[in-house]
């Protein structure tokens, strides 16, 4: 890989620091959407209603992209690949560079963090995100008669997660890798480590922290963990030959790896119509065994 500058991730820091990453196995993903619902519940994602959805103002932090292949003229006979898409927590995040007020920066544990309090809402980050995973609070979605959903009544507010801020209008938000769970897990590890003298750099055990989407995924397609720990499950998946990152050529160096979907089909059954749907993701996801 050609790069103009040195990475901030240094080998010598690997023992000390965590690098949170996620692997998603597209073989296991059924596109059920449970992860999206779990994410909405965990992260107080506002419900915005039909009108806003029609104008592409959904607030979901997570979505499931669908890519079709096969005989596209015959809708009965296409095969589909689901790709859960959320913030990729890129190491070279295009969104961070363009934020004028440092509202979105990288943390030492590899997260692309978002500070709502600092955000002024220029939306430059969302424009510059190749994955289009950033969501802007176009209106105030709580205590607002125009958005008469759960955040507008006392009973509905009981659903809100007290660990997560309800965002003000005019700020950007996006998948945080459930940072509230990560911080909680790290603290617990440190508290426990005090008794066993591992010091301030104690890391949570692999699998001790689960993101909401991972926790909910019925097929276990989502695996989350520390890339700096070579023995972690996610590290092993990152080394898998099926692993790829989305839009690799933009060189954003995402922290999310997808594992290519593999289908057991005879070669002559596969008709990929690249002329109509020749996007990069598809090329990655449609590696058929020959």
């Amino acid at each position: 890989m050609i790069t103009l500058w040195d990475s901030h991730y240094k080998e010598e820091n690997a023992n000390r620091l965590i690098r949170w990453v996620m692997a998603i196995d597209l073989n296991k993903c059924t596109g059920c959407g449970a992860c999206v619902v779990a994410c909405n519940a965990e992260n107080n994602v506002p419900v915005v209603g039909k009108k806003e959805i029609m104008t592409h103002r959904d607030m979901h932090w997570m979505r499931i992209d669908r890519y079709y292949s096969g005989d596209l003229d015959n809708a009965e006979n296409v095969s589909v690949v689901f790709q859960p898409m959320m913030c990729q927590h890129c190491a070279n995040a295009p969104c961070e560079t363009v934020c004028p007020v440092l509202a979105t920066v990288h943390t030492s544990d590899g997260l692309n963090s978002m500070s709502y309090n600092r955000c002024v809402g220029t939306r430059y980050c969302a424009n510059n995100c190749p994955y289009k995973v950033r969501r802007f609070n176009w209106f105030k979605y709580h205590n607002n008669e125009n958005f008469d959903f759960h955040q507008n009544n006392p009973l509905g507010k009981l659903v809100l997660n007290p660990d997560v801020t309800v965002r003000f209008r005019g700020v950007m938000e996006k998948c945080s890798f459930c940072v509230q769970r990560l911080q909680d897990g790290k603290l617990r590890a440190k508290v426990n480590a005090k008794q066993t003298d591992a010091g301030a750099f104690a890391k949570p055990k692999d699998g001790a922290i689960k993101t909401a989407c991972q926790q909910t995924c019925p097929t276990g397609a989502i695996v989350f963990g520390d890339l700096n720990d070579p023995e972690s499950e996610v590290s092993k998946l990152f080394r898998d030959e099926r692993a790829f990152t989305a839009l690799e050529e933009v060189k954003t160096l995402p922290s999310v790896s997808y594992l290519t979907r593999i289908r057991n089909q005879k070669a002559d059954e596969v008709k990929v119509n690249h002329a109509e749907h020749g996007h990069k993701e598809e090329e990655h996801t449609e590696k058929h065994p020959s």
Partner: peptide, 8 residues
């Protein structure tokens, strides 16, 4: 020092 988009 803040890591902004992996830039130096």
């Amino acid at each position: 020092q803040i890591d902004v988009g992996g830039k130096p």
